[in-house]
Structure formats: structure tokens, C-alpha cells
Computed example of a mutant assay.
Amino acid sequence: MATPITASTLVAALKDEGLTVVEVRDWRNHHRNHQGDWGPVHGVMIHHTVTSGAERTVDLCYDGHPELPGPLCHGVITKDGKVHLVGHGRANHAGLGDDDVLNAVIAEKDLPSPNEQNTDGNSRFYGFECENLGDGEDPWPAAQLEAIEKAAAALCRHHGWKAPSVIGHKEWTDQKIDPRGFSMDDMRDRIAERLK
């Protein structure tokens, strides 16, 4: 359990991990806190966007759409490996998921298969949307995968978490398939190595 990182500390943590950070519009004050709690936070959730084009993807994640207002995450990781910060606070990214998964994340143990939608993930997870069509064919450039690793590691390092605190959206709920095209187990291995 942890108090959410401040905006300035997040920027510093990402840069300390070697990332290029782009601060988008009024991201520091852009959130959905009026819709519910933000924190305590327990982990980091990785998504794919089902979009292409960095500018379009970042704008969508900042603004959202009529059915789901933005921000749709905290950071957007584009194919070039840049992290675009689009929100700070509660974001519409995780939705409802399985409390057994949340308990496993908190305990940093192996994840059970999700089979319930009974817990609000938007209040408990940081979210990174990653520019990718999510069709299993759109490539994941090395720079982007490295940025996912570094961004997740930056938050883990700040909070004293280990790699099991990082999950994919599909590991939170059986209603989602993202991220598709790389292995979350492999990504956690990379994050664990970086945290050494």
C-alpha cells in the first residue's frame, strides 16, 4: 500500500531511469478524482491502445472519448520510447477486476487467473497505455519495450515494490486481451533485472 507519487517526483523518477518524458498540456491537474478514490496504490498496469500514430494516440489518451472521458492512463509510451504524461490522479484505465489478483499484487505473489469484476482498479493502479494496434502483428520496437521496463521500474523503485507489482490489463480481468504481442512474464523478468 502506498500514497500516490507526486507529479514532480514522477517526472524525476522517470528521468532518473533514463527516459525521455513529454509533459502534455495540463497533465498535472488532469484526473478523475471527482469520480472516486485515487490511492492507496499497489501496482502498475500495462495496456495497448489499439491505435497507431503517436500524436493521435496521446491526444486520445488525454481527452478520452464520449463513452469514457480522459485521462485514459497516466502515461502513454509511444513506439519511439518516449513517455507522454497525460494525467495525474485517478484515470480511466483499469476498470473493474478481480480482488484475488489485487491481493496477489499486494503480496507480490504469482497471479491467479482473473474471473471476477468486483474491485475498482482505477483507484489502485498506475496505468501506462502503449501505442500498438494490439493485433499480435504490430511490432513492439526495442525502444518501446525498454521504455515500458524503465517506466514500471521507476515506480517500483520509488515505492519499494518488486516486479510482481507490474501486471497486464489481461491479468486484471478476463474481459481484456492487452497487452498483446509480448509476454508480461518476460517483461517482469526485465523489470526484476533492472531493479537489481
Results as ranks from 00 to 15, higher is better:
residue 85 L to A: 08
residue 193 E to V: 06
residue 104 A to T: 06
residue 51 T to I: 00
residue 171 E to Y: 00
residue 32 R to Y: 01
residue 174 D to K: 07
residue 97 G to L: 13
residue 43 G to L: 12
residue 165 S to D: 01
residue 4 P to A: 13
residue 103 N to C: 08
residue 174 D to W: 02
residue 106 I to E: 08
residue 56 R to N: 11
residue 139 P to T: 04
residue 28 R to S: 15
residue 108 E to Q: 15
residue 161 W to N: 05
residue 185 D to K: 14
residue 167 I to E: 01
residue 108 E to R: 13
residue 84 H to G: 07
residue 129 E to H: 14
residue 6 T to Q: 14
residue 173 T to K: 08
residue 97 G to R: 03
residue 188 R to N: 04
residue 58 V to Y: 08
residue 124 R to L: 15
residue 79 K to M: 10
residue 90 R to F: 06
residue 75 G to A: 11
residue 19 L to A: 07
residue 136 G to S: 11
residue 125 F to K: 03
residue 57 T to G: 14
residue 24 V to M: 04
residue 153 A to G: 15
residue 83 V to N: 03
residue 152 A to G: 15
residue 43 G to S: 10
residue 132 N to V: 13
residue 49 T to G: 13
residue 103 N to Q: 13
residue 172 W to E: 08
residue 108 E to C: 12
residue 69 P to M: 09
residue 128 F to K: 03
residue 180 R to V: 14
residue 174 D to Q: 02
residue 141 P to V: 03
residue 29 N to C: 10
residue 191 I to N: 00
residue 42 H to R: 14
residue 173 T to S: 15
residue 166 V to R: 01
residue 168 G to F: 05
residue 148 I to S: 09
residue 141 P to C: 00
residue 146 E to V: 02
residue 183 S to M: 04
residue 89 G to S: 07
residue 143 A to T: 14
residue 187 M to Y: 00
residue 73 C to R: 09
residue 43 G to F: 09
residue 120 D to M: 07
residue 88 H to Q: 08
residue 101 V to A: 12
residue 163 A to R: 04
residue 178 D to W: 02
residue 80 D to W: 01
residue 143 A to E: 15
residue 190 R to W: 07
residue 70 G to I: 09
residue 24 V to R: 12
residue 123 S to W: 00
residue 193 E to T: 14
residue 46 I to G: 12
residue 58 V to W: 00
residue 79 K to L: 09
residue 103 N to E: 15
residue 78 T to R: 05
residue 134 G to F: 06
residue 102 L to C: 10
residue 144 Q to K: 08
residue 128 F to N: 01
residue 62 Y to K: 06
residue 181 G to M: 11
residue 59 D to N: 15
residue 127 G to N: 04
residue 30 H to D: 06
residue 115 N to I: 02
residue 64 G to H: 02
residue 144 Q to C: 06
residue 178 D to Y: 06
residue 118 N to A: 05
residue 11 V to M: 09
residue 35 Q to K: 13
residue 146 E to A: 13
residue 131 E to D: 11
residue 83 V to A: 03
residue 105 V to C: 07
residue 112 P to F: 00
residue 131 E to W: 11
residue 18 G to N: 01
residue 69 P to C: 06
residue 36 G to N: 08
residue 2 A to L: 02
residue 64 G to P: 03
residue 117 Q to K: 05
residue 30 H to F: 07
residue 71 P to T: 13
residue 195 L to W: 00
residue 77 I to M: 10
residue 192 A to P: 07
residue 24 V to C: 09
residue 46 I to Y: 08
residue 23 E to G: 02
residue 151 A to C: 13
residue 38 W to P: 10
residue 69 P to Q: 11
residue 3 T to E: 15
residue 174 D to M: 09
residue 162 K to H: 11
residue 119 T to I: 10
residue 175 Q to G: 03
residue 66 P to M: 13
residue 42 H to F: 04
residue 19 L to N: 07
residue 47 H to N: 11
residue 167 I to W: 01
residue 89 G to R: 04
residue 187 M to G: 02
residue 6 T to N: 09
residue 48 H to V: 02
residue 24 V to P: 04
residue 151 A to P: 07
residue 63 D to E: 15
residue 167 I to F: 02
residue 42 H to T: 15
residue 183 S to A: 08
residue 9 T to M: 06
residue 143 A to C: 10
residue 6 T to H: 05
residue 24 V to H: 10
residue 16 D to H: 05
residue 123 S to R: 15
residue 189 D to F: 00
residue 55 E to S: 15
residue 181 G to P: 06
residue 38 W to A: 08
residue 109 K to V: 03
residue 55 E to N: 10
residue 75 G to I: 07
